[in-house]
Write a protein that binds this DNA or RNA. Sequence first.
DNA 1: AGGAAGAATATGATTACTTCA
DNA 2: TCTGAAGTAATCATATTCTTC
Length: 285
Amino acid sequence: MGIDGDASNTALLLRLGLSSTLDSPSKPHNYHIPNKNPSFLKLEATSFDDEPSLTLGLSGGALATATQKVDVKPAAASAGDLYPQASSVTVSAVSSFSSGKAKRERELSSEELMEVEKKNNSSRLSDEDEEGVNGRKKLRLSKQQSALLEESFKQHSTLNPKQKQALARQLNLKPRQVEVWFQNRRARTKLKQTEVDCELLKKCCETLTDENRRLQKEIQELKALKLAQPFYMHMQAATLTMCPSCEITSGVADGKRNSNNPFSMASKTHHFYNNNPLSNPSAAC
DNA sequence: AGGAAGAATATGATTACTTCA
DNA sequence: TCTGAAGTAATCATATTCTTC
């Protein structure tokens, strides 16, 4: 897939390049291509038809002065020998202007490339050489590598460049691979956490549903009680006015008020809910 | 054969730094 | 010299692809 994408980009850019004059790019230094917007790229490239700084000759190095990225290209090509999955090497002159590839080629610069070349005889190299350049080859991390990565991840879920380099050296991997591993690891962690949160919310939802059901039932019971209220209110008024221990004298008035407000829980609780007015009227006190 | 795991890739956003008018 | 705009590079999150088991 990635290769197809590269191919299409290549076709586009080559076409644009050929439509331009290949010599003397007039804006070699400041030319900027928004690598995240192909349509914009096309527009801008055509609008600069007479200033063809986008002519990325397939011969490679033709526009070596165009950008810093192009300077990296020969090194990237050598790295491509090591890492066949980076098949974009064949179109590196073009793809170096697209975000992902450009980044990777950037990463293969300087000391890393030296390191990569040092590793020419590593076991991984022989494996990848055998795989050829078609399609990407999936690396299988060894248990030791995974353990060390996990250990490192426990300490810090993100790496600074030095840590990344050191870890890559230690693991005999590319810094990019370490970076990718950490990115994926963070993503997996987040996914796991999301799943845990989801489970938690489900349980919470179930609890609330139960609670809601219980409260609905209670409402039904209260409504049923309310139907019988005239009888109870009558009793209540009489009882309250005669409460011997509290000597509540406002019973009648309160009783009237409460009868107008059947949801007055304080009075209801006092007289109906917590106590049986029929058995012991003064117990609530 | 089909699914899961996970490595790799693509893409967009953000930030810091540099350059230049 | 200061400043703001534009360009560049690095890094991250996220989504997706694709290989391997």
